[in-house]
């Protein structure tokens, strides 16, 4: 599904955010990306999403080589990828269902498809009752559910999450993780950057740890604090 071969990303000002990353993620996997702030997690996510382009190495996603992808075929790639963030990125002037419908509308989905899909997705994320509310009338957890609904509206095969629970309390975070788990069980590959120790430990999924842009650990059923020494 996703393969990185010797990927290096250097930002302007000579900051090497990722250095020689090699890894492969299978279809349907749930992967945590952990590491301290500044270790390159967001950069990893942005490379998969093609918000950034690698300086060297090769990234394959759903059979596409992102390095040689033309800018006009980026939209097609993104339609296959759902993205959620710490800050939700909801449109304040649109209601919950309008936010979700918007994502389908702007990729040219016909009206009947939108009318049929939006309620189904709101039901999935448990927001049917709040369909006509505006984002500022919702709790943080609810807002993140809306953003998940929007990301999932087009049934992407990959879901990228950059610290989705970063602004949420532990109880609310558990709810969000259950939802991502549900989406993953429906067949979507999930890559989630986080430094939330308890979430990683409770889920018992694959953990990839980055340290200053280098992969220092890759456990198939990992916890957050596995000592590095074991894998040296």
């Amino acid at each position: 599904m996703i393969r990185l071969e010797n990927v290096t990303k250097v930002y302007k000002g000579d900051v090497t955010a990722l250095r020689g990353v090699n890894l492969e993620i299978q279809r349907g996997e749930f992967v945590f990306l952990v590491g301290q702030s500044g270790s390159g997690k967001s950069t990893f996510i942005r490379l998969l999403n093609r918000e950034e382009v690698a300086d060297s190495g090769k990234i394959l996603l759903a059979g596409k080589d992102l390095g040689s992808l033309r800018s006009w075929s980026v939209p097609a790639l993104r339609r296959n990828i759902g993205c959620i963030f710490q800050d939700y990125k909801l449109l304040e002037k649109k209601t919950v269902q309008e936010n979700v419908a918007f994502a389908l509308e702007v990729i040219g989905q016909p009206r009947p498809v939108i009318r049929k899909n939006v309620p189904a997705i709101l039901d999935l994320v448990g927001l049917t009752q709040k369909a006509d509310r505006f984002p500022d009338e919702l709790s943080g957890g609810e807002q993140q559910r809306v953003s998940i609904a929007r990301a999932f509206a087009n049934r992407p095969t990959v879901m990228l999450a950059d610290e989705p629970t970063g602004n949420l309390d532990p109880a609310t975070s558990v709810g969000i993780m259950k939802l991502l788990d549900l989406i993953n069980r429906r067949g979507t590959t999930v890559v989630m950057a986080t430094h939330d120790r308890s979430i990683v430990n409770s889920m018992q999924r694959r953990v990839i740890e980055l340290d200053r842009g280098v992969v220092v650990r890759d456990d198939s059923h990992g916890i957050y604090d596995e000592p590095n020494g074991v894998y040296e």
């Binding site: 999403n49 006009w72 939209p75 918007f102």
Partner: peptide, 17 residues
């Protein structure tokens, strides 16, 4: 600006924007 950011994120084409 925000709408445009979301549009790019979900894969709206350049011409659509």
């Amino acid at each position: 600006r925000q709408e445009i950011e979301v549009m790019k994120l979900v894969g709206a084409t350049n011409w659509f924007i």
